[in-house]
Amino acid sequence: MLRSVLPTLARRTILATTPSSLAARVLTLPLSRAPARPAAAASWRRTFATAPQEPVKGNKVRSYVESEGRFSSLAYRSLGLMLLTGAAIYLYFDIEKEKARQVIEARNADQAVGKPKLGGPFSLIDTNGKPVTDADFRGKFMLLYFGFTNCPDVCPEELEKMATALDSLDPTMSTKITPIFISVDPKRDDIAAVRDYVAEFHPRLVGLTGTYDQVKAAAKAYRVYFSSPPPEENVDDDYLVDHSIFFYLMDPQGAFVDAYGKNLMADQVAARMRARVEAWEKTEGPIAA
């Protein structure tokens, strides 16, 4: 709103306080000197410098005569200019403040949508039967997928996509990312089952499983929905496991970077991973392959 009022206001005040050419020149001084916002200053100068030109041209003499009654003394003129300058500066900063607020708001909105709060410690068992935690994977990016080995359709599809994405990257880039499969079906997925399963998809794919509680905690941290029966529930082995399908890219410090859903193709996943790794290396330094 302010922005629309301002030029009108400026034009009107300048017209009222002729000699306007003087007013324009004085007013542009403090604003054109402000180095922080050159673009804004330029637009201001334009407002003040061009607006008064119409009445000045050809009407110069008349304007002087008219003004004589209202601003007879230099003191009045200076006071008027001072007030005008003050008002202009006040409005200028008011607009800048509003702009800054909008930028901050936009940034917050972006974080709320694009960066869910997820990730965190997990404590599981690897395919050699050794306990591992998220800390063991620091120093490289992690590409996490939660699934189960009896998954008939979606998991193989997604894990193949993951393997394709990784292999389409330059090998020096690909080795900066550790692909990890975490089973959400610990009841059926013992260490051997997970070991055989991950070997089918990628030579570097790490398979992890654990107790029901361990898996549940990991899934919760990464905001993975899954439903598989808890151990105390007595069900036959042909139960339905339902889980969300995302790959999570975590940076070398374990912080969440990106999530890739079913809607993305392997080349899109690869391109986004590459961009993330490059961006990280630019600010944090190279990752040992």
Binding site: P152, R223, D242, S244, F246
Partner: peptide
């Protein structure tokens, strides 16, 4: 019918909700 694939829309909505807001 396969449980993985019969309800893609409700599944996607659920997964995205859990990812963004927690289960």
């Amino acid at each position: 019918f396969k449980p993985c694939c019969v309800c893609p829309d409700t599944k996607r909505e659920r997964d995205e909700c859990v990812l963004a807001n927690g289960e």
